[in-house]
Simulated assay, not measured.
Amino acid sequence: MTKACKYILVHILETLVTCVFHEDCILPCSFLPTGAVVIHWYKQQIPVHSFYYRQDQFGLQNKHFSGRTSLFNPQIAQGNASLVLRKVKVQDRGRYKCYTSTRKGNQETFVNLSVKALIQMVKVDIIEEEVICQAQNIYPLPQLYWSTEPPTDLNNLYNHTRKTADSKGLFTIESTITILGNISQHVYFCSVVSGDRSQVWTASVKQQDKFGEEGNKLFIPCMLPQPQHNFTLTWTFIKTTEPIIIFTYDSRSQRITNSWEKKAKLDIQQAYTGNGSLTLLHPESSVHTGFYTCTLSSFQMKHQVHTWVNITVPRTGTII
């Protein structure tokens, strides 16, 4: 006499998901719906989310996930057991298991979750005899590279790079190099590359001096990398402490704002080639002497040229 055997159907699937830090993320899981279902989500052995008796069960949920998980409850009857994980943290990375059980059998789906915090900005500043580059709140650990224009032997760049992590697991990377020769001889480029190499953020800085006489046109050069995407060009001026915006151009809207319309001009068409130079039309010593900054901002790039401008009063001859 042959004994009846009961077979339990088990499926094992695996998915890779990358979530962005502090954003919501979906961990996919589906099953063949056949009446009532039990759903358990685990990270390793840690309870993440459970659903049975037709409702969410939060009693065993680990406090790390408290208030941050949900299912697509109206779609469970159609076989959707996907998990929504809100405000993703670095600590959320790891291997998750979605376990579903119906009268037709059990299924296990595994999701490998990785986390990345995107590079939002790279700052480069010249302070005395050093160039400092910094990027914050990044994950995983990025890499930082220096270069100059005109090119120079990178072995001549004394490079001190420091990498630190905060309590959230996000990295700050900061690097310092010494000025090469005369401060105005080089443009300094700093590139930060994300750990998965999906992002390359580049910033640059140049510092220079310019001298002119009252009443004579003065050309303030600003040569920048040619923008490949929509960009914003901005000129600011500092006389004492607070900077004022004297010129902006947005290539997306093609909007121009020039608060020095009768004092300065700029060729917009040249800006598309990377030439953002400004011309002072009738400079005055008491008004236009100061610190000018030309900034080009575009997709994953920011480039600046700082110029100290000194407008002098022409000497007058003495009649004897």
Results as ranks from 00 to 15, higher is better:
83 L>F: 00
41 W>E: 00
194 S>I: 02
198 S>V: 07
317 G>R: 12
156 N>A: 10
117 A>S: 09
171 F>L: 07
192 V>T: 02
184 S>G: 06
133 C>N: 00
226 Q>T: 14
86 R>W: 05
121 M>Q: 13
132 I>G: 06
22 H>C: 03
284 E>R: 13
293 T>Y: 00
15 T>N: 02
22 H>L: 08
155 N>I: 11
262 K>A: 00
319 I>P: 05
33 P>C: 05
43 K>A: 07
121 M>W: 09
42 Y>G: 08
75 Q>M: 14
246 I>T: 13
41 W>L: 00
158 Y>L: 12
296 L>T: 04
2 T>V: 14
169 G>C: 09
75 Q>C: 09
61 Q>L: 13
231 F>M: 13
108 E>L: 11
225 P>E: 07
243 P>D: 00
181 G>H: 15
22 H>D: 10
61 Q>W: 10
47 P>S: 10
142 P>R: 10
111 V>Q: 05
39 I>M: 09
80 N>M: 02
205 V>W: 04
191 S>T: 15
65 F>Q: 01
164 T>W: 00
40 H>R: 07
225 P>F: 07
134 Q>D: 09
175 S>F: 08
280 L>K: 00
282 H>A: 05
237 F>N: 04
148 T>S: 04
115 V>H: 06
285 S>C: 03
168 K>H: 14
91 Q>D: 12
190 C>D: 01
97 K>V: 11
114 S>I: 07
175 S>I: 06
37 V>I: 01
42 Y>F: 10
148 T>D: 01
212 G>L: 01
118 L>M: 11
68 R>L: 11
199 Q>Y: 00
259 S>W: 12
310 N>Y: 02
302 K>R: 14
31 F>G: 01
139 Y>K: 00
288 H>A: 09
20 V>E: 03
240 T>V: 08
175 S>A: 09
202 T>S: 13
197 R>I: 08
25 C>N: 04
236 T>W: 00
192 V>F: 03
317 G>F: 13
160 H>I: 14
14 E>H: 08
70 S>D: 10
53 Y>P: 00
78 Q>R: 10
155 N>Q: 14
152 T>C: 15
73 N>S: 15
269 Q>C: 06
22 H>G: 05
7 Y>K: 15
280 L>S: 01
87 K>Q: 15
173 I>H: 02
236 T>Q: 04
270 Q>E: 14
297 S>W: 02
4 A>L: 13
248 T>A: 05
238 I>S: 02
89 K>P: 02
186 H>P: 06
216 N>G: 01
241 T>P: 03
121 M>C: 14
259 S>F: 07
199 Q>R: 01
312 T>I: 15
297 S>V: 06
8 I>S: 09
190 C>Y: 05
227 P>R: 03
